[in-house]
Amino acid sequence: MSDRIFGGIGLMLSLLYIWRATLIPDSFMSDAVGPRAFPYGIAAVMALASIWFLIKPDPEPEWPRLGRLAEIGFAALVMIAYAQLLPELGFVISTAFAAAYLTWRLGSSPLQSVLIGVGTSLGIYAIFHLVLGLSLARGPLGF
């Protein structure tokens, strides 16, 4: 079933791709092929592969239970929040939070998580910023 859904999504994706490709404007300079032909070919391959999934799906993969799925969703959300807050809060603070969350969810106890989070953040800061001179996001406190 998963493969059938996947095939359906793939088919929609390829149709969407073809539609967006038809919208590519022509340019005043053009070659014999133009900017649309190759994308059409790609979409055709994708559509054929997707139809194949619909006709002949693989055995069902082992999906995680709902709780674990939410786990992955939350981790992604934390990463998104991290990406947004990085320029605001600076590297050290936001990284400490994100790393602490991830290690907590991977099985550290709460106290350990805080220590590992702070340690990870300071360790990366020391190695990459202080030793290697990489510019990391600066927060209001200057680090």
Binding site: L102, T103, L106, S108, I116, I124, F128, S135, L136
Partner: peptide, 19 residues
Amino acid sequence: PPRILMPIVAMVSFVGIYG
């Protein structure tokens, strides 16, 4: 253990791309 390692992997990935 992976619980320490994987956050480091994630954070180093972010550092690299942000860099």
